[in-house]
Each structure stands twice: as C-alpha cells, then as structure tokens.
Amino acid sequence: MSAGPIHALPIHAFLAGSGRDGAGRRLADILAFDDARIEGVHDFIQWCFPLPEASRAVPGAPVLTAAEAAAIRADPAAREGLRAALARMRRFYAGTDGWLRPHDHNHLRITRILAAVRDLASPEEAAEFHAFVAGRNAASGAPVNPGSLRYWQAALSGG
C-alpha cells in the first residue's frame, strides 16, 4: 500500500501533506493549532507561506527555490495545502484582535502570506486576503501603521 506521492523538495512535501517542517510537524498539525499557538509559535509561517528570501525573524527557516515554487504551483495537493493554511490564518485574523494595533509581528506575517499566495496560488486569492485584513483594520479604527499597510499593498504587486 502506497503512502502517497514522494515529494523530494521539503517545502513542497510539507505543503502537499507528505513532509514535515523543521520541527517535525506535518501541515495537519499546524492547521490544528489553536489561536494561542498560532500567535505564540513563530517557526511555522515560513513553511506554510514560503518566500525566496531568507527569514530575518527565524534563522534557518526554509528559502523557496524557483524549482520548488514551480513544483508547488504544478501540484494540486500542495496548492490545496497552501489554501488550507490561508484559511486557517484567515480564521485566526477574524477571531483575534491582538494584531490590530500600530506594531505587531503579525503585520510581517500578513506581508509574507500575501506574497506567497500571490506567487504560489493566485493574485486574486492574495487580493481577497488583503481585502479581508484591510477591512478588519478599517472596522477597528485603522490602528495598523501606514508602513505595514504599504508593505501589504506592495506584496500584492510583487514590489
């Protein structure tokens, strides 16, 4: 009996559900995090929303290569994993308010999410998430600093 496809590239395997992150967790483990763990654990976001730049926040976090990005885009299971992670983060940002302040580490996470979703799923899905977080910010009296808002907008356009 096969355990499913073997994915040789680590981020691709993680998003497709057949691999583990640097801490040994599967994507399903992270999707099951409660909001306190989403807030308090800082080494999962780079696996769920990989970028071609090294993380300054988490040394040793994976860096997305062009080959791995292409493999993720071509694999429905990996794209579905990315979308599941996006849905979990949307629930987190819908159900918590701690990030709705002038400066918060979640602003960097949102920038990462927008860039990764734009590049690996679609610009439309990134724009939907942007509209959601921007709407939450506006409904809360616009506490997020203008610099973060500019980064979010730039992430949509790849700038």
Rank of each mutant, 00 (worst) to 15 (best):
A74E: 11
A74L: 06
A74D: 13
D75M: 00
P76W: 06
P76Q: 06
A77Y: 05
A78R: 02
E80K: 08
G81M: 03
G81Y: 02
L82P: 03
R83H: 07
R83P: 04
A84K: 11
A85D: 00
A85M: 01
A85R: 02
L86K: 08
L86Q: 09
R88I: 09
M89Q: 14
R90K: 15
R91A: 15
R91K: 13
F92A: 11
F92H: 15
Y93W: 15
A94K: 02
G95F: 07
G95V: 07
G95N: 15
T96N: 14
T96C: 10
T96H: 11
G98P: 00
G98I: 10
W99I: 03
L100D: 10
R101S: 12
P102E: 15
P102K: 13
P102Q: 14
P102M: 12
H103A: 14
D104S: 14
H105F: 14
N106V: 07
H107W: 09
H107A: 14
H107M: 10
H107N: 08
L108E: 12
R109F: 12
R109T: 11
T111N: 05
T111F: 01
R112L: 06
R112Y: 08
I113M: 15
I113T: 13
A115D: 01
A115C: 01
A116M: 03
A116K: 00
A116Q: 01
V117S: 00
V117G: 00
V117K: 00
V117H: 01
R118N: 10
R118A: 11
R118M: 09
D119E: 15
D119V: 00
D119T: 10
L120N: 02
L120A: 03
A121K: 03
S122P: 07
S122E: 09
S122L: 10
P123I: 06
P123R: 05
A126N: 04
A127K: 06
A127D: 10
A127H: 02
E128V: 13
E128A: 15
F129M: 05
F129N: 04
F129Y: 08
H130W: 12
A131V: 03
A131M: 02
A131K: 07
F132W: 05
V133A: 01
V133H: 05
V133W: 09
A134C: 06
A134M: 11
A134F: 03
A134R: 08
A134Q: 07
G135A: 09
G135M: 09
R136N: 05
A138C: 03
A139K: 07
